[in-house]
Write a protein that binds this DNA or RNA. Sequence first.
DNA 1: GAGTTTGAAACT
DNA 2: CAGTTTCAAACTC
Length: 487
Amino acid sequence: MHPCGDIVCIIKQESIILQFSRKKISESSDGDGCKRCNCKKSRCLKLYCDCFAAGIYCAEPCACQACLNRPEHVDTVLETRQQIETRNPLAFAPKVVQHVTEPPASNCGLEEDATHFTPSSARHKRGCNCKKSMCLKKYCECYQENFYLAIQCFLSLIVCEEVHFPSFGKANVGCSDGCRCEGCKNVFGQKGEFGMTKDVLSDEESNEIQDASLVSNSNIMASEDAVRHTEFCSPYNSTPFTPAFQYLNHEKDASKAWFPSGRYFVSPEPGLPSVPPFLASPKSPRSSDNDTMSETTKEILDLVSFDLESDYGNVETGNEISESHQEPGKTTLVSHRPDSQGWTNNLILQSSSRNVPYSSVKPSRFHGSPNTPVSNLSGTKHQELLDLDHDLFDVMQDDTPEILKDTPTPLNAVKVSSPNKKRVSPPHSQVPKFDSSSPARFRNAVKFILKSVPSFPPLTPCINPKNGSFEQSGNSQNCSGSDQDHE
DNA sequence: GAGTTTGAAACT
DNA sequence: CAGTTTCAAACTC
Ligand SMILES: [Zn+2]
Ligand SMILES: [Zn+2]
Ligand SMILES: [Zn+2]
Ligand SMILES: [Zn+2]
Ligand SMILES: [Zn+2]
Ligand SMILES: [Zn+2]
């Protein structure tokens, strides 16, 4: 994945906007834009270091000191890595695997290898050991995993394509038996200690959780569920789901695929309705970025970097993208690439239908599969989430083409960061200016920021079972932004 | 930004 | 293993 790009997903009434940034939105103030690890004493050669743990070299965005996790010290890195691995074979194993009880059968349809590959014995996922966070904060790894998983699935749903974060394990869904947490209240939890599936969120305890956090949780719930159930994960599987999406491209000549297939997004399987990759338009006359994303957008980066970084030669260019004719019942996906500097990439999904595809599609995906005990997992909440979604997309039905020209103003924002990391940015909103109008109405707009993480370079390709996850693209992980140099 | 909290990783 | 220390992120103010 990209070393320091974030994905901003703003869900508004009328549209969903994905922005692909290369800089970390959060620490943008610092000027360094995209930091990663910040190790001081580990020299980035211990699992303390997120980069190292993730199997990637430190890069410019890192603020580590005396870092040895760099290509120059490849030997040292590998050596250390082996040592650690010797000590604990699972040290670098992808977190989480399939559910112990569930056969790989219903494996999101994607990365089958991951599942295949996972011998029931190698189930990493040792679970968390939280004592005080009740697994409701990112101190908890489970929580984080879910968080990313949620986003991943959520985006998949939105985009009707499988979104996949590399080196983002299959995610155990919430705390499970493997966890030894105390007082777990993980919403996805399966430990069932506190009936957490119930009103965790509605509970007053949610005080601890900010609005945005709640939003994310909600979404997570939904997505999590989804993920847990084949129907969602495998839209291409047997689901009669027909993506009523339309990909719009502001400018034709965009010849770059937005996502290196296999990276962020996995191309649909053959035979499926060809869902073209998102294309990036070189430029578009969009000037209102400043509004919503003011700060964020500024540092948004181009996707080209993504491509480059991933050195994927198979960038798809094809695009029979229909022009801007929106048909009812369809959700338009607009690939957007504002800045002339190629600084920003936006992906906007807009629904223009009365009977939104989502209303029919989503439910089917969520409840669709009869064999999946969707209900038993927090019926109420689940429903609630669905409602939320409905709401969301209902609103979206109101076509508002203008949205394409205008940057929406999210009311809430959720930041997400590296999937394979231990800790990431705060779940709650960090965008103060948006929370004004609607208090708890995160339905109006939600903003996600998905932080990207560089792919795994040359370290130990063999370690990662999941193919594609650990690219060995050698160097190439530089934050082109490059203001700050390493060390 | 400094200081605290937290739980994994490392160490004994 | 368990107990302790170390560590860097998450979080708080
Ligand atoms: Zn580091
Ligand atoms: Zn680093
Ligand atoms: Zn480093
Ligand atoms: Zn936990
Ligand atoms: Zn857990
Ligand atoms: Zn837990």
